Each structure stands twice: as C-alpha cells, then as structure tokens.
Amino acid sequence: MDEKQKKTRKKEKKLSLLYVLGGGILKEDFIVKHTRMIVLIVILMFFFIGNRYTCMQKLREIDRLQQQLRDVRFEALSISSELTGNSRQSQIELLIEEQGVELEGAKTPPYELYK
C-alpha cells in the first residue's frame, strides 16, 4: 500500500500546475532523454512561424502593388483617350479659334513632291 500511495503522489505531483511551471517537469526522464529533439522542434517552429510572417508581408505588398498598377493603367488610359480627343482636327480648330490665334486650315490638300 505504501508504494501505491507514493506512485499516486508522484502522479499528482506531475499533474499539478505548480510542478510544471516550477520546472520540475524538466527533470523527467522523457524530457532529459529527448532534449535535442525538443530543441530541434522548437527551432523549426520558430523558423516556420518567421517564414509564414515573411510570406504574409510579401503577399500584402503584392496586393498593394497590383492595386497601384490598376490605378496607373486606368490613369494612363484616361490620359490617352483625352489626348486622342484633343488631337482631332475639329478640336484643334476650336482651340485655335478660342485662343485668338490667326491661323487657318489649308484649303488645298497636301501633295507629295517626290515619289
């Protein structure tokens, strides 16, 4: 009976929060035997967490740059269409008339001097 009581007390000791937080669990045979493996697993966990954090930052940067690219493309398209509209002959004649510049359109069509 005496040995059974010691075993149950030992199990109770293992299960208590104070035993775990106090560092008593580090003296256990399993922990001592597998210290290298535990350290390796902890290092790998830190590596994977850091890698995931870096990947998430890069994905956010890619999304931001894609949005910026869409905005710039839209702006370039609108500027191009505005330039096309302003370069029409009728639009140019209207602008010349509004500015008061004394220019007139050619009455005869252009022709080639050399073939």
Rank of each mutant, 00 (worst) to 15 (best):
K4D: 07
R60D: 14
E98W: 01
G24F: 02
G105Q: 05
K11G: 07
L113K: 04
T8W: 10
Q67C: 04
L83M: 15
I25K: 04
K4F: 05
G24P: 00
R60T: 09
S80Q: 13
K107P: 00
L18D: 12
K14V: 03
G105N: 05
I79M: 11
D63S: 13
K27F: 09
E104N: 03
K7G: 05
I41W: 09
Q89T: 10
E75N: 12
I25V: 09
V101C: 03
I49E: 10
L83R: 15
S81R: 15
L26Y: 09
K10C: 08
I62W: 03
E3C: 06
D71G: 02
R52V: 12
M56K: 15
M37G: 08
N86E: 09
L113D: 05
Q89K: 15
C55P: 03
K107W: 02
R70M: 01
T54Q: 15
E104C: 05
M45D: 07
T108C: 01
Y111L: 12
R64Y: 04
I79S: 07
Q5N: 08
E97Y: 06
T35W: 12
K10Q: 13
M1T: 05
R36H: 09
T108D: 03
Q67H: 07
K11S: 11
V39P: 03
K14L: 11
S90A: 14
Q66T: 04
L65T: 07
E61P: 00
F48I: 13
L83S: 14
D29G: 07
Q91N: 09
C55Q: 14
K7D: 07
R9Q: 12
D2W: 10
L113R: 09
R70Q: 00
G85C: 04
L69P: 00
L65I: 04
I43H: 00
V72I: 06
C55M: 12
T35C: 10
L21Y: 12
E61D: 14
I92K: 02
L18Q: 11
N86K: 14
C55A: 11
G24L: 03
F74N: 14
R70K: 13
L18N: 11
H34K: 14
R52E: 14
I41R: 14
E75Q: 14
K4T: 02
R36V: 05
L44E: 11
Y19F: 11
G23R: 01
L26R: 03
S87R: 12
R36N: 13
G50S: 03
G24E: 04
R64C: 06
L21W: 12
V72N: 04
Y19M: 02
G100M: 01
Q99D: 03
V72R: 03
L18V: 08
T108W: 02
